[in-house]
Measured scan of single mutants.
Amino acid sequence: MRSPRTRGRSGRPLSLLLALLCALRAKVCGASGQFELEILSMQNVNGELQNGNCCGGARNPGDRKCTRDECDTYFKVCLKEYQSRVTAGGPCSFGSGSTPVIGGNTFNLKASRGNDRNRIVLPFSFAWPRSYTLLVEAWDSSNDTVQPDSIIEKASHSGMINPSRQWQTLKQNTGVAHFEYQIRVTCDDYYYGFGCNKFCRPRDDFFGHYACDQNGNKTCMEGWMGPECNRAICRQGCSPKHGSCKLPGDCRCQYGWQGLYCDKCIPHPGCVHGICNEPWQCLCETNWGGQLCDKDLNYCGTHQPCLNGGTCSNTGPDKYQCSCPEGYSGPNCEIA
């Protein structure tokens, strides 16, 4: 077999650049994923090309098998939009790539799955459409700058595939050579959905506090709520009108309100015997008056200043008058 000629994957630097851009600016990249293909086995019993010639040398006159050299087999892949009637021409609109030389006439790579040499990765940054057309071609490398490479066999497949970690196996069982391969579509990290176009990256910072479920939905951490999980859940009972919080379990009062639940107004400074319904009010309790509710309107009842059976009459805020019984006098009937 001729010395292998290595063929790198098509578009790999571009895919790395796209992945970097997506990581830095995830909101700009609407989708991100990759179409993967792995060659599993190849069977070319006679070492022939599609045109019937030998990959190298002439045929044995007896059994008609190619004798001089085995094929240097590598694969090309073209991925494009779905076609009900597949045409070989036209651009590979979803991507293209190739393997290096991975074997001779016949080989089996099932035991070495995950080997990069027999895998082609086609990254995409558009919403995966699920339906596709795939062209797979086996080629013989001439290892010659003058002699062109020659095609051994080709296969085409049109179908639908959803993103999954599971592989789907396909076979080419007609023509001079048979080969088996597997395909799958996977979303990149933080991308979800059938189109790999739903973005969700767990975070716990100013912009949100959430994890992501298997469908890419945000699940808020304990103590947080809202579409972006950036609204803290305040202390139970915290007034929704007069209290708020920036951290879970907190209850910060608005100006003019106080209390554990921010449901108590702050009265006017200096208010003595008054209450409030709104901040800075001083609504006097019964029998109290004045701007600060510090004037006693029922001095008689509060202090009972009249002595010796005198009768007390309220005459104004903090004022009274005693009517003394016979034989007593003085402001409080204290003089006998």
Results as ranks from 00 to 15, higher is better:
Ser3Pro: 15
Asn173Thr: 14
Glu153Gly: 09
Leu260Pro: 05
Lys198Glu: 11
Thr106Ser: 08
Gly289Val: 12
Asn105Lys: 04
Asp189Asn: 06
Cys284Gly: 01
Pro279His: 07
Gly30Trp: 12
Asn46Lys: 03
Thr302Asn: 01
Ser244Ala: 13
Asp63Glu: 13
Gln236His: 07
Ala336Pro: 08
Ser112Thr: 11
Lys319Gln: 08
Glu38Lys: 05
Thr133Pro: 07
Asp116Ala: 11
Trp257Ser: 05
Gly290Val: 02
Gly47Trp: 12
Val272Phe: 15
Asp213Ala: 06
Ala155Ser: 11
Ser141Cys: 10
Tyr191His: 06
Gly62Ala: 15
Gln166Pro: 13
Tyr299Asp: 02
Phe207Val: 13
Gln43Arg: 03
Lys198Gln: 13
Gly327Trp: 14
Gln281Glu: 08
Pro227Ala: 09
Leu79Arg: 00
Ser93Cys: 12
Gln304Glu: 11
Cys200Ser: 03
Ile102Met: 06
Val45Met: 10
His268Asn: 05
Ala155Gly: 08
Cys55Gly: 08
Ala111Val: 10
His273Leu: 02
Glu180Asp: 14
Ala127Ser: 04
Gly243Ala: 04
Gly56Arg: 02
Gln236Glu: 14
Cys220Trp: 00
Ile233Asn: 04
Gly114Val: 05
Leu135Val: 01
Cys196Gly: 01
Arg165Pro: 14
Ser10Thr: 15
Gln258Leu: 11
Glu70Gly: 15
Asp296His: 04
Val176Asp: 07
Ile120Ser: 01
Ser131Phe: 02
Thr67Ile: 14
Leu170Pro: 08
Ile335Ser: 14
Asn143His: 08
Asn108His: 14
Gly8Arg: 15
Glu81Ala: 14
Tyr210Phe: 09
Tyr74His: 11
Phe179Ser: 01
Gln182Pro: 00
Gly216Val: 08
Glu38Ala: 02
Leu18Ile: 15
Arg119Ser: 05
Arg203Thr: 12
Cys66Gly: 15
Ser164Ile: 05
Ala177Asp: 01
Ser313Thr: 06
Gln34Glu: 01
Gly193Asp: 08
Cys253Trp: 02
Val176Gly: 10
Tyr192Phe: 10
Leu297Arg: 15
Trp224Ser: 04
Arg12Ser: 14
Leu40Arg: 04
Ala23Gly: 03
Ser156Ala: 14
Cys253Phe: 00
Thr145Ala: 10
Cys333Arg: 03
Phe199Cys: 06
Ala211Ser: 15
Cys284Ser: 00
Thr219Asn: 03
Ala58Ser: 10
Lys264Glu: 13
Leu109Phe: 07
Leu283Arg: 09
Gly290Asp: 10
Cys282Trp: 00
Arg25Leu: 15
Ala111Pro: 09
Glu222Val: 12
Gly95Ser: 01
Trp257Gly: 03
Thr315Arg: 11
Ser164Arg: 08
Trp280Arg: 09
Asn332His: 11
Leu307His: 09
Cys212Gly: 04
Tyr190Cys: 11
Pro129Thr: 04
Asn108Ser: 04
Asp188Ala: 12
Arg252Trp: 09
Gly11Arg: 06
Leu135Phe: 09
Cys300Gly: 02
Ala138Gly: 04
Gly47Glu: 08
Val146Gly: 13
Gly103Arg: 08
Val86Ile: 10
Ala336Val: 14
Cys324Tyr: 07
Glu180Val: 11
Ile161Thr: 08
Val185Gly: 02
Asn44Tyr: 15
Glu278Ala: 07
Pro279Ser: 10
Pro267Arg: 10
Phe94Val: 12
Leu292Pro: 08
Glu48Asp: 08
Leu20Gln: 02
Cys229Ser: 01
Lys198Met: 14
Asp205His: 13
Asn105His: 15
Gln50His: 10
Asp204Ala: 13
Thr169Ala: 09
Leu109Pro: 13
Asn60Ser: 07
Leu16Arg: 00
Arg85Gly: 15
Tyr190Phe: 09
Leu24Pro: 05
Phe179Val: 11
Gln182Leu: 10
Asn118His: 13
Phe206Cys: 06
Phe94Tyr: 06
Tyr328Ser: 03
Arg130Met: 07
Thr315Pro: 04
Cys282Arg: 01
Asn197His: 05
Asn162Ser: 08
Arg68Pro: 11
His178Gln: 03
Ile120Val: 08
Ala177Thr: 11
Asn332Thr: 06
Gly237Cys: 06
Lys241Met: 08
Leu49Gln: 07
Gly301Ala: 00
Leu17Arg: 00
Cys333Tyr: 04
Ala336Thr: 11
Pro227Ser: 12
Asp188Val: 06
Ile233Val: 15
His178Leu: 04
Pro202Arg: 07
Tyr191Cys: 02
Lys319Ile: 15
Lys154Gln: 15
Gly33Asp: 03
Asp205Glu: 09
Gly256Ala: 04
Phe194Leu: 10
Ser158Ala: 08
Phe107Leu: 07
Cys251Phe: 07
Glu137Asp: 08
Lys246Gln: 10
Ile233Leu: 11
Leu37Val: 06
Arg113Leu: 13
Cys22Gly: 02
Pro227Thr: 09
Ala177Gly: 12
Gly8Cys: 15
Ile266Asn: 05
Ile233Ser: 14
Ile161Val: 07
Asn197Asp: 05
Asn298Asp: 07
Gly90Arg: 11
Gln291Lys: 11
Asn143Ile: 10
Met221Ile: 10
Thr145Asn: 05
Cys276Arg: 04
Glu222Ala: 13
Phe75Ser: 05
Gln147Pro: 13
Arg165Trp: 14
Ser41Ala: 04
Thr315Ser: 14
Arg12Pro: 04
Asn217Asp: 13
Thr169Lys: 02
Cys300Phe: 00
Ser32Ala: 02
Val86Asp: 06
Gly193Arg: 08
Cys312Trp: 00
Gly289Asp: 03
Val121Glu: 01
Glu38Gln: 03
Lys319Asn: 10
His303Asn: 07
Ile266Val: 07
Lys241Gln: 10
Asp189Tyr: 09
Ser142Thr: 11
Thr67Pro: 12
Gly270Arg: 05
